[in-house]
Nucleic acid binder design. Structure first.
Length: 134
DNA sequence: ATATTGACGGACC
DNA sequence: CGGTCCGCCAATA
């Protein structure tokens, strides 16, 4: 009974909370936020929530949320510059370096306390492949 | 209540 | 590696 009522499905508020958990200098994808929120939340919903921020855009680091390809979906708002100001590096293709600034997700304690869930596997790749980058 | 859109993601070619 | 198509879910008209 201590479980938060899912009836309301306040995706917006939840998404805002998760986005606020993203530290400066880090970036997260819409899909990651959706996964953390869980409960059938999808990347599309995250985009809607951020689009409905309105005046709350000043209290929610929406700039740290980018698409899966590491590119900026929204242009004209200086999102890329904002991220660069936070220390996020971009490549010539205008895409953020996910391998360097991709948020690992919230801690299990934080997530569980909020009723969310941590990321299952951010970027599981065999370390052996790293050796043969040449 | 139904149809269309949308700050996406993943699969396919 | 890049562009394209389909799919998922909610909000809005």
């Amino acid at each position: 009974m201590t479980q938060p009522a899912r009836d309301e499905r306040d995706y917006f508020e939840r998404i805002y909370t998760v986005v606020q958990a993203v530290p400066s200098g880090k970036v997260a994808t819409y899909g990651d936020i959706a996964t953390i929120v869980g409960d059938g939340c999808d990347a599309r919903v995250v985009g809607h929530a951020l689009g409905a921020l309105g005046a709350r855009s000043a209290t929610v680091p929406w700039q740290r949320i980018i698409n899966r390809t590491g590119g900026i979906s929204l242009t004209g708002h200086g999102q890329k510059e904002l991220l660069e100001a936070e220390g996020v590096g971009f490549d010539e293709r205008g895409q953020a370096r996910m391998d360097l600034h991709h948020w690992s997700g919230p801690s299990e304690d934080w997530a569980r306390a909020r009723g969310f869930q941590p990321l299952p596997a951010p970027t599981a790749k065999p370390a052996a492949a790293q050796l043969s980058l040449f």
